[in-house]
Simulated assay, not measured.
Amino acid sequence: MAEKKTVGIQTKLLMVQADLKAPKNQFNKFGNYHYRNCEDILEAAKPLLQSVGANLRLTDDVVQIGERFYIKATAVFTDIESGETIENSALARESAQKKGMDESQITGATSSYARKYALNGLFCIDDVKDADHDGGAQKPPQGPQKVSKDMINTINAELKRTNIATGIILETYKVKKLADLTIEQFKNFMGRMEKTPDYMPPKEDIPDPKE
């Protein structure tokens, strides 16, 4: 039985980054802007993590820099199949005081802030202010995201494993070169490859070791 080929952790993380949608559904009335919080990102990430076979762990540490204390939050992305991890950390400084909050609430709010930016870095989330906060400027439309070099390497490895010609893939997805494939097409390709066994050359093509 052919061994099932797995997708590497870098590709899995890239797939989550490409599909993650965490709109800024929270609104700050005082500052008059929309934003997203840590919980919004986590809710959007959970189904994507399950789909690629990975989990996410968040940890906090208190670190002192000079005379001030900071919360260091670390987001750890783990590939369940290989056990490999990718992590990103962010620091947030505790306020000396904040109106209406006791010390534990200040620490909790700082932790949530630090975790949010650790997740932003891990999942490549742009956290600039929305158009309704910068005067209504419209962002130019963006086309489908193309595959990365890591994904192209994965495709070539699968083509070699299955002995499928590159031209067949180009014709199937109507592209001129592998670099023109989109993330969605890559995911479709990998789904097909999971069901495709390793290529076994005909017996007559296998040299006789006695000769």
Rank of each mutant, 00 (worst) to 15 (best):
Q185L: 12
T196I: 13
N37C: 09
V76H: 05
I206Y: 01
K46A: 09
P47E: 05
A137I: 05
G191H: 02
I206M: 04
I152N: 01
Q185M: 14
G143M: 02
K4F: 13
K139F: 01
F186A: 04
K187E: 10
F69N: 01
K195E: 07
M1Y: 13
N153T: 13
P202F: 04
L58C: 08
Q105E: 15
L91D: 09
M15F: 07
M193T: 10
E3Y: 15
V7L: 14
G191K: 04
A114Q: 03
E67I: 06
R192N: 13
G167P: 01
D61R: 00
V147F: 01
G167H: 12
P47N: 10
K203E: 15
K176C: 09
D19M: 12
E43I: 08
L14M: 12
G31P: 02
C38N: 03
G83S: 08
Q185P: 11
R115G: 10
E211F: 15
R68K: 15
K29P: 07
D126M: 05
F30T: 08
Y33Q: 00
I71T: 01
K195D: 04
P47V: 07
L42A: 13
T172K: 14
S112E: 11
C124N: 10
L58T: 02
I169V: 15
T166K: 15
I168C: 10
Y33E: 00
I164A: 10
V52P: 02
K146Y: 00
S148G: 03
M151Y: 00
R161H: 14
L159S: 02
H34G: 01
I106Q: 09
V128M: 10
D40W: 03
R161F: 15
R57E: 03
M200H: 11
S89R: 07
K149E: 02
K149F: 05
K46F: 06
I152G: 02
K29I: 08
H34C: 02
Y199T: 07
A73P: 11
P47L: 11
D19K: 06
A73C: 09
Q97Y: 07
Q50F: 07
K5C: 11
R93G: 09
L159Y: 03
Y113N: 11
A75T: 11
S95L: 12
N25Y: 07
G135L: 03
R115T: 08
L14Q: 15
F27C: 06
I106T: 09
L91S: 11
N28D: 13
F27G: 05
M15V: 11
